[in-house]
Design a binder for these strands. Sequence first.
DNA 1: CTGTTAGCGCGTTCAC
DNA 2: GTGAACGCGCTAACAG
Lengths: 324, 324
Amino acid sequence: MKRATIKDIAKVLEVNTSTVSRALNNHPDISQPMKVKVQEVAKALNYTPNLLALNLKTNKTKTIGLIVSSVGKFFVPSFINGVGSVLESHGYKLVILASDESFDKEADHVRLCCNSQMDGIILSLTNQTIGIDHLDLVIENAIPLVIFDKTIKQNKFSSITINDAQYAEMCTEFLLNNNCTNILGVFGNPNMTITKERLIGFNKAVEKNTSINAHSIFASDIEEALQKTIIKLNEDASITGIYCMSDEVLTGATAALHQLNKLNDIKLVCISDGVLTPYHVPAINYVQHDGFAMGVATANQLIIEINSKEKITPIALKMECGWV
Amino acid sequence: MKRATIKDIAKVLEVNTSTVSRALNNHPDISQPMKVKVQEVAKALNYTPNLLALNLKTNKTKTIGLIVSSVGKFFVPSFINGVGSVLESHGYKLVILASDESFDKEADHVRLCCNSQMDGIILSLTNQTIGIDHLDLVIENAIPLVIFDKTIKQNKFSSITINDAQYAEMCTEFLLNNNCTNILGVFGNPNMTITKERLIGFNKAVEKNTSINAHSIFASDIEEALQKTIIKLNEDASITGIYCMSDEVLTGATAALHQLNKLNDIKLVCISDGVLTPYHVPAINYVQHDGFAMGVATANQLIIEINSKEKITPIALKMECGWV
DNA sequence: CTGTTAGCGCGTTCAC
DNA sequence: GTGAACGCGCTAACAG
């Protein structure tokens, strides 16, 4: 049986479709008895509004696009859950688009979001992205867009991040305060602003104290972090503290320590989303960069911008992170 | 500037909208020069087709709904990437809906998918779901739906799973072959069919050999797995092998072994998506339940059913898993 | 209070 | 080869 439309229910009641439409939308002009009758027939016919027709009419889709390099193990899943929980309560759907660290794909996805008339976009830049000209389309179409976590310097869109340098510095100082005089910083992909910022914080802490010996390595995935950490620790056996900028590199570094049987000799500290980190043994100190909370904040900002009538001035929100 | 429509470009060329439409769709009836002119104006006006109007016309949305308990750390992210990679190449968008292990939410999301006229649905049941009556709506609307991983006995929809009992048995036998005579099985939420199946496999292996002592515990999250494993190991110090049915409980069990300092004394084996497991030290043997591959298979099956003209007879695909 | 009409943007008859 | 007209399902402006 084909899906019922307001036309069908209008036919049954021998009234006009617009009457039905207004009755269903509880319009004040419609009499109570009529409303009741319409409701009944609607229920009997299993009527549900055709959202596609509504979309066309209102030029809204109640859909948000989330463009992210990929749905990895860390941070992003929590972030998605955070975004999802907010969007759901506002009746928005969330479309996931993976850019796979390719700038072209990122641009494609942005285009897709615009062409599909999405009501908003949430974006985390790839490590290849060095400009935001590809987002001009978004501005032309007046689609609210919020950038989170991985961003670059810009002032056209709101961004939700943390103070990367500050927390990296905090972590590094923790090592120094724990009598580590020779430390290693394990960083992610060097192209990312987030990496550069965290490196700045690391160096800042190191430079405060001239007696410190510091190394740093960059790794784009777990395996690379593992290999480079092993090499570094073999080169310099006197390293006693490691700062990891993310859960991903932490996983590699931890495996390296395991393999070298140095898990109890070297102090670890990291910036982590805090989901798996609590299960590290020996216990590990970390600054919690809560993905869920950031997802919630990002989604909320996006909703604000969507609902705002006037053009909003972009904000740059730095979220607070706690020490665990 | 407002978005251009075929009307706008028709006005510029002083032709009818239908001419423009046909020209853009490369209809044979349209003269070559006209096609060229239309293309040019379209480009000049930055024209892109309004997908919303097309959706209404064709009753298709090029959108697939993925309903999953939540986007956790294990398996699901890889699965999403697998699904996404296939869907992208077919021009479909992927909407993520989290049911949060609530049957009501699952039913709500199914309803949403139907009302939004999604072209297909991919579903993993919550651990509360004991029937599929809430999917009748899907059948009425003739929307292709594929169930993966967490399912129950049914014959209305295609399902993509693994032979849970078989691989659980295989894992357990591995322990027995490694001289473990007292073993512990760590399982997930006991409501899930997947848990029951894996328990069956575990028990089957155990029962083959009467001299084996076996325990089993059930845990719905990492923390519970951690706590219960500790208790069990304290109760019976002679346990020398642990089978973990998933990455999640493995994380808890590993933490327990760490804490009890038994990591090198107890043999671990598990069914894992194989993303973090390779970094376990000491190395751990596992049957790889590849999330990405399952995502690809599920998406492919869904595409087949979407493209099929006739009603398809559901298949129940059991994917092969490799031993690592 | 309810009916009529028009239109969202596009594709598709059926004419000419 | 091109134009006119209609319809997808729904809402809003205008009547009465």
